[in-house]
Design a protein around this nucleic acid. Sequence first.
DNA 1: TCGAACTGCCTAACATAGTTAGGAGAATGC
DNA 2: GCATTCTCCTAACTATGTTAGGCAGTTCGA
Lengths: 212, 212
Amino acid sequence: MLGSSNRNRIAERREATRREILDAAWRQAREVGVAGITLRDIARTVGMQPPSLYSHFDSKLAIYDAMYADSWLAYEEHVSRELDPLPTHPRDAIRLIARVFFDFSVADPARYQLMNHRTIPGFEPTAESYAPAVRVLERGVETFGALGVTDRADFDIWVSLLGGLIDQQLANDPGGDRFSRLLERATDMWADAGGIPHRTARRASTKRRARP
Amino acid sequence: MLGSSNRNRIAERREATRREILDAAWRQAREVGVAGITLRDIARTVGMQPPSLYSHFDSKLAIYDAMYADSWLAYEEHVSRELDPLPTHPRDAIRLIARVFFDFSVADPARYQLMNHRTIPGFEPTAESYAPAVRVLERGVETFGALGVTDRADFDIWVSLLGGLIDQQLANDPGGDRFSRLLERATDMWADAGGIPHRTARRASTKRRARP
DNA sequence: TCGAACTGCCTAACATAGTTAGGAGAATGC
DNA sequence: GCATTCTCCTAACTATGTTAGGCAGTTCGA
């Protein structure tokens, strides 16, 4: 009986169309920004009439949702790849995490905007799409814990700082390298203040900045 | 000759209508969010037909622009009032600045969203409306300088951190008091790392936190 | 004071969004 | 082979910001 095989083929074709629509949406997001995405343009790109898109997505927001899930899943994978193996020096690890986060956002500002879903009016990710974002955050807490940062507040502060730095970079100096300089200094400050324990780092004590 | 007096009266009436429109816009922004503002609703509130609004504003974005300018002017005044006189203890001053910033944003999230103009698709403030924002930033640099923070990077990091903390608060814990706790810890970290000099603070030495 | 110019509002209409209704034709399944 | 399902279509609807053009009251100069 070929029923199951056929069913598979159908599902695949359906999935392919879905991906085609999402790819068109991504291309458009990168050209004109996330808010500039238009069902008509997406439809034209994939060779459909706008209402036909509704055979694949419930609404425009559902398309955003799929893109949101895409992004966080990709980011999760990206982080996993970069953090294996984890650097042994805490300060290096912290910088690496920041660098990954930064590269990921600067490489594709549209994606970054989408991942900060609050910047898109009317869009709220579904619980399912939100899950990878939560997992990444948990992974962060875990990683910091392994490096000796057990105070949750310190982690939250670090995340805030990182988000703020990236926003400032994208807003004031897109294409420049302001982020690197600020990150360098911020990491030092954080380390000096005990945010990053010196546990495995012998060199850190010799590097401590003199107080005026 | 009454010409000039008449001209004044006309200008006043015109300004009053303009204010009425902006008030309606603000009310609506607080009810349904900045993105939810609708010319039709504004017009209904002030008792006009939508196209009539164009006698007072060039476009919807022009209304946003006026609201943006309003906000930053109010903030500038707010800051000036709170920082006069400037606390003598640097750490207190830093916390006060953060507190003012936070109160101002939490008291009126719609206003905060507007001040972060990048969160509103298609809106870019005019140079004139942007000026107060620049002045406030300069004022911040100046104030920090008077407190002994001469490294511009340290100031930028502080601003990033503050923005990140507020965003995190508004996103994860609206109505809660997460911000206070994180701010406390962040200020300490910053001070310990030398971001806040102990220069003018004699009491500071007695208050210095013990390092574990 | 009279007529011209201006001002502030109006109605009608338009362009562009997202979205719904309903159907036609091909693919699929018993 | 026939009923069902699926995918796409056209037509139309609603809501948005915006433009065109006009009309009545007000202001202002000769």
